[in-house]
Design a protein around this nucleic acid. Structure first.
Lengths: 195, 195
DNA sequence: CTCGCGCTTTACATCGTGTCAATTGACGCC
DNA sequence: GGCGTCAATTGACACGATGTAAAGCGCGAG
């Protein structure tokens, strides 16, 4: 039955996800995934041609389950530009912890695997789009610093919100999630706002 | 002769350095290093017990050649706190490109090799010390935001100046080195300064 | 009953790291 | 001049992870 097959495929992705979540994204081998999913190592290769593709598919799977696009888009519902920026940062900040394991594994492959690099860049391009939209709102309402063009402002916000910065503040500085979000909102305001 | 041996050791580290510089930190194998240094692969293991140790030693070697500590310390010569902060950011910013190849390789091993992780953390701790010193100067002269304790301010500055952010702005956003330094100075002022 | 198909099992190729042992060759010393 | 020392070479090999290949098993559908 085809649903059996889809079931196995999903079980493998879920196993990947959980394992990466538990390990923080490191040291998860194909054999580990297989064992956790309750299938043979070869069965994994029956559904995904390579480790990179497995990670990429898992990322998309999580995205779909969590409705990322919906959540990020919802952040655009706030009434004014500054409110939308805050909502965007909150939505993204809440999302990072959920995908961090897979992100971390994908990032580790970025250097060696072209497909992984492309998938990652694609993801980051989506985040940048969100940043650009937030910046555009600010600019339209006259909140953006006069000496900052929209592209530069987008680059800055994009950089501030990078997964690496979340890792650094959380893991290396020991900041809580709430503190991270609050700091990012504050930092974004200070670096982008007029006055 | 012992100087012969030191010579080989240095040649290996220099080869490592150059190769990592050229490749941006990826895809440099022990065999590549050996070939570039003009020795056999085994000779590399005669001088360095593992790839991680080779990278660590190479980092220290570059540090010594470039007198990092001296340059970072010299940034403390500026007359006032804000000037010292700027000088510190300039010194660090000028240093990153020179060590980036090795840093990148070391970072890639951070997840899998405990020694590499420790070496990296050590390096970053040194950077944090510099940040803390800059923040202390600001605080003493009353420039630091009142709602920001020195530790948090240090964490923020430390995060802003991370190698990952340099990579992101340079590689992913296409910013020039000068633009990076200027933006970091601006960002640091905006996020740490009173008023 | 038997065919198709998802999955298992076993075996193997590849690549990079790291280890081991035998050998070479230059240098200083008695 | 012979000798030991020691850096370096050579070639072989173990290991762990990814990925490939092929034969076989079990179960449901026709």
């Amino acid at each position: 039955m085809s649903s059996e097959m889809r079931d196995t495929r999903e079980r493998i992705m879920t196993a990947t996800w959980r394992l990466l979540e538990e390990s923080g994204g490191q040291g998860v081998r194909m054999a580990d995934v297989a064992k956790r999913a309750g299938v043979s190592r070869q069965a994994v290769y029956l559904h995904f041609p390579s480790r990179a593709e497995l990670l990429i598919a898992t990322t998309r799977h999580i995205d779909a389950k969590h409705d990322v696009d919906g959540r990020l888009a919802a952040s655009r519902g706030a009434c004014d530009g500054p409110g939308r920026l805050d909502a965007f940062i909150e939505a993204w900040g809440a999302y990072i912890p959920e995908i961090h394991g897979v992100c971390s594994a994908l990032l580790a492959m970025r250097d060696t695997d072209a497909a992984a690099a492309a998938a990652w860049d694609d993801r980051m391009a989506a985040l940048r789009d969100g940043c650009a939209a937030a910046v555009r709102d600010l600019a339209e309402e006259g909140h953006l610093r006069a000496d900052l063009d929209p592209d530069s402002a987008t680059d800055l916000l994009w950089t501030l919100l990078s997964v690496r910065n979340w890792e650094h503040l959380g893991r290396d500085c020991g900041w809580s999630q709430d503190r991270y979000v609050a700091a990012m909102k504050d930092l974004a305001r200070r670096s982008l706002f007029k006055g």
